[in-house]
Design a protein around this nucleic acid. Structure first.
Lengths: 144, 144
DNA sequence: CTTGACCTTGACGCTGGCGGCAGGGTTGGA
DNA sequence: TCCAACCCTGCCGCCAGCGTCAAGGTCAAG
């Protein structure tokens, strides 16, 4: 399989694949003309890599998983280091989701308050008061 | 308040504040000597901005909230336009949270499968089988 | 032989959020 | 008078994951 086909079947691009190779995540044999050649397992490997990337991993983070990615998924008996990194990434993801959910909740609350203020008073003076009530849970409180 | 003090009270840096200004997120009056001068509300505003950034917003994302950040929190004089933008942002937030939650779920599933495989078989042959079972929800399935 | 679709390496560009340095001006205190 | 501690603008660097030329070589088809 040449690089273009691998790109197609993995939903990536030739450029990305060369990038992964340069990062040491995938390998390739070379044909006589210098073209990269891949076998079937490369497709699986690349899909796994991209899945990890999509999950917020960096290329560096993916490296420890290389042993597993060959076979079929990243569920092969992974090294302790791989597990550790996965958990770290998971924690980061959780924190990010948490932070964004908090932002969302604040925004929802602010919207509700704004609409209530709208219904109550037109000028916004009363609205500012209602708004201030939400301030405790608002971004200003998150000044860590 | 000069930029250094504002940086101190907001836990940021002068460099960052100039960056926000260049991005149009904060303003400043200038003293005769050209120094930036800020009033108290600037600190609140900056803290709000940083809170949003910490929540995964980009500077661009923050821009629509500017009207709210001035006063005290993100509850503004609820103009129809502001409400609309807020709702748009809310939708974007929801989508982002959704995407990241999906990534998290995949990662969790992969971890669970990995640990099951670990507990089940050491060599990897049987482990690969167990792994394959988890593959449906695992990264390999996320080849979009 | 030519065309056109593939492939190669190399190198610069881009986005985001600053850090850091260069090369200055200003101000207050010893 | 001189230093230290501020401030200014401007610009390059960095990380990450590629995109996008540029400038070619290769190969099958017409």
């Amino acid at each position: 399989m040449l690089i273009g086909e691998l790109a197609r079947v993995t939903g990536s691009t030739a450029r990305a694949l060369r990038h992964y190779e340069q990062a040491g995540l995938i390998g390739s044999s070379r044909a006589a003309n210098g073209y990269r050649e891949y076998d079937e397992s490369a497709a699986v490997r690349v899909r796994n890599i991209r899945a990890l990337l999509a999950a917020g991993f960096t290329l560096e983070d993916v490296r420890p998983f290389l042993g597993c990615l060959d076979h079929d998924v990243l569920a092969a008996p992974p090294s302790a280091a791989a597990l550790r990194i996965a958990r770290e990434r998971l924690a980061v993801l959780e924190r990010r989701i948490e932070a964004q959910s908090a932002a969302r909740d604040r925004l929802v609350a602010a919207l509700a308050a704004a609409e209530k203020a709208r219904a109550g008073a037109g000028t916004g003076a009363a609205g500012a008061g209602a708004a201030r009530a939400g301030a405790g849970t608002g971004p200003a409180a998150a000044g860590s």
